[in-house]
Amino acid sequence: MNKPDSKKYVISRGIDDFLMDINKAYKFIMLFFKDVFKRPFHLREIIHQSYEIGIRSLGLITLTGFIIGIVFTKQSRPALEDFGATSWLPSLIGIAVIRALGPLVTALISAGKIGSGIGAELGSMRVTEQIDAMEVSAINPFKYLVVTRVMATTIAIPILSFYCSFVGLLGSYFNVHAHESIGLISYYQHAFSSISFLDISGSAVKAVVYGFTIGIVGAYKGFNATQGTRGVGKAANEAVVLSIFLIFIEELAIVQVINFIRYF
């Protein structure tokens, strides 16, 4: 016979569940840092996943980065024209794309494409018992599936982010070139003239943090998926929503820290 529902909650069911989720996610992240430095490192799988992530997103990142470069230049031009300062366009676009747009746009696209993919893949493996099959074959599924994918996103997304910035500047160049006579190399020189080491390193740090967030959130949601095929969809969906939410919070926090360093 089943026991009556005698479970007691510390605060309320909703708050207790939320705190339990936080605790579970914290343990998941700690397990990642514990396992990432332990053998076996599954380097081949990390390289394979990094390659897959990079190749799968390259087309979309190219298109989006290029369009953003053009649109941002078009929108900025009238304001600068009023002051006769269109020559500042390359510097303005350089700062905007390298400091903020490149990493952020890459992260948002990757959250939708890669984060949901990891959530759905691991979720599907969970509900079809493929993860249990690894476990009973004495293979650590956390290390083989989670650690490798999180490492792959942490490596691949910064590379994609710099690529996106480069393509964004290229898009901007085409728009500038249509109005003013300027060579490509000269344009890039102008664009980078206002970029400091702090901008580049700040952008790299952001991209690494976003990559880690996308990987760990997708893996967490997928690895803990339940409720059959419905759970797979839910894991993929939640991976995207939570990743994007966290990316914006991280963006705000990192910008504050970088600005603090910049003006210190």
């Binding site: 079809t128 493929q130 249990d132 099959a133 476990e135 009973v136 074959s137 650590n140």
Partner: peptide
């Protein structure tokens, strides 16, 4: 536990082959 698992074979209901 992993060493013990190497001595046990588990055939899953839905086979659980890696897709």
């Amino acid at each position: 536990l992993d060493n013990l698992r190497l001595r046990i074979g588990f055939s899953f209901q839905n086979s659980a082959l890696y897709d």
